[in-house]
Structures are given as structure tokens and as C-alpha cells.
């Protein structure tokens, strides 16, 4: 049998408006990491070695090499690792050993990058959080139009929006719709 061809969530979508752009980010793996009970210090050390970062505080994201690590829950983090490697969870699991547990999440989420000076005008129609006045390293999960969304603020002012794969088509339609409403 022929090798299986992977499909991205948004079929490499990209679109520009006056002051706002949306583009799918592909070739990135997501791995959820949980701290094994009682191994907090060792887990932090293992993460430093494996990903080169300190653990982010609640509601924040830290750069990790060419990727990111964000806090998702007490004792739980989401690593975003460039590479297109569908065994990234196994590799990270090996790196952290008994200090924690890893689960592949790349396929469960689609990732959109949004940029432009009208970002907040669009996001205020979409997400209930106060994104206009949040910290530079903000990253949090909430809901947009009844669908889950993880909002990550990047260093250059752009944002990442992560949303579950199976409802992603509707999520993108909703985002396009509010953008059309705001910008036209």
C-alpha cells in the first residue's frame, strides 16, 4: 500500500483583509505534558534539558527553542514543537522519563496565525477575554462562538489561535464572518 498522505486541518488556508490576515500554521507538533505526582522539581529540570525553557506560570507561554511551551492546567503544559514528527510525544516521553507523561495532541488541534493592526477589533467580536490589555506572554484557553480556542500571544504581536480539529471548519467560517463584519 502507498504511504498515507497527511492532511492539514485548514488545507493550508491563508487570506488577507485590510489590516488583518489569517494563515494556517502547519508542520508543528503539539504534545501535552503532565507532571508525575511528587516529581515537580525533576520534571522542571527534565523540561529545561529537553526543550530549553523554564516552566510557564498559569496563563502564560514561554519560548522553547524554535517552539513554545504554554501552561494549560495545574501540573499540565502544552509544548509546540516545529518538525512534522508524529512521534514527538514518544520522544518527549523518553526525554522526561518517570518525571511525567506525554500525549500527542497535534492532530486534535488546527492552528491559525492572525496578524495585522485590526487584530483586537476582530478578536473583541470573537473571544470574551480582555486581549487588548493583556500581558505580552499571554496564553489561555477559552471559547469562541461555542468552540474551544487557545489564544497565544507571540513576541512579534501576532497571535496563534488553536481550535479542535473536528469543529475547525466552522471555527474558521465564524472567524472569517466576524472579520468581514468588522473590516468588510
Amino acid at each position: 500500500m502507498d504511504k498515507l498522505t497527511p492532511l492539514s486541518v485548514f488545507e493550508n488556508y491563508s487570506r488577507d483583509w485590510d489590516g488583518f490576515s489569517i494563515a494556517e500554521i502547519t508542520g508543528v507538533e503539539l504534545v501535552s505534558l503532565s507532571v508525575a505526582g511528587g516529581h515537580e522539581k525533576e520534571f522542571a529540570k527534565a523540561m529545561k534539558t529537553a526543550l530549553g525553557c523554564a516552566l510557564p506560570a498559569p496563563g502564560t507561554v514561554v519560548p522553547a527553542g524554535e517552539g513554545l511551551v504554554m501552561w494549560t492546567a495545574p501540573g499540565q503544559y502544552l509544548a509546540m514543537i516545529p518538525g512534522g514528527n508524529d512521534r514527538a510525544d514518544e520522544e518527549l516521553a523518553a526525554a522526561i522519563g518517570a518525571t511525567g507523561y506525554a500525549v500527542l495532541q497535534s492532530d486534535g488541534w488546527g492552528i491559525l496565525q492572525i496578524s495585522g493592526d485590526k487584530i483586537f477589533d476582530v478578536l473583541e467580536r470573537f473571544v470574551p477575554l480582555n486581549l487588548r490589555n493583556c500581558a505580552d506572554n499571554f496564553a489561555a484557553r477559552t471559547s469562541a462562538h461555542h468552540m474551544a480556542v487557545i489564544c497565544v500571544r507571540l513576541l512579534d504581536g501576532a497571535w496563534l489561535l488553536l481550535t479542535p480539529r473536528t469543529s475547525a471548519a466552522g471555527f474558521l467560517e465564524s472567524l472569517e464572518h466576524v472579520t468581514d463584519n468588522v473590516i468588510g
Binding site: 501535552s32 503532565s34 508525575a36 505526582g37 511528587g38 501540573g75 499540565q76 507523561y101 500525549v103 500527542l104 495532541q105 497535534s106 492532530d107 486534535g108 488541534w109 479542535p164 480539529r165 473536528t166
Partner: peptide, 14 residues
């Protein structure tokens, strides 16, 4: 007190 961790993988796997 149990060491157990849960996460949904419904969308992750076809």
C-alpha cells in the same frame, strides 16, 4: 492522592 492524568484524544485519533 492518586498519580493519574487525563486528557481527551477524541479529535487526535481517527
Amino acid at each position: 492522592e492518586m498519580d493519574v492524568h487525563l486528557i481527551s484524544t477524541t479529535d487526535q485519533w481517527a
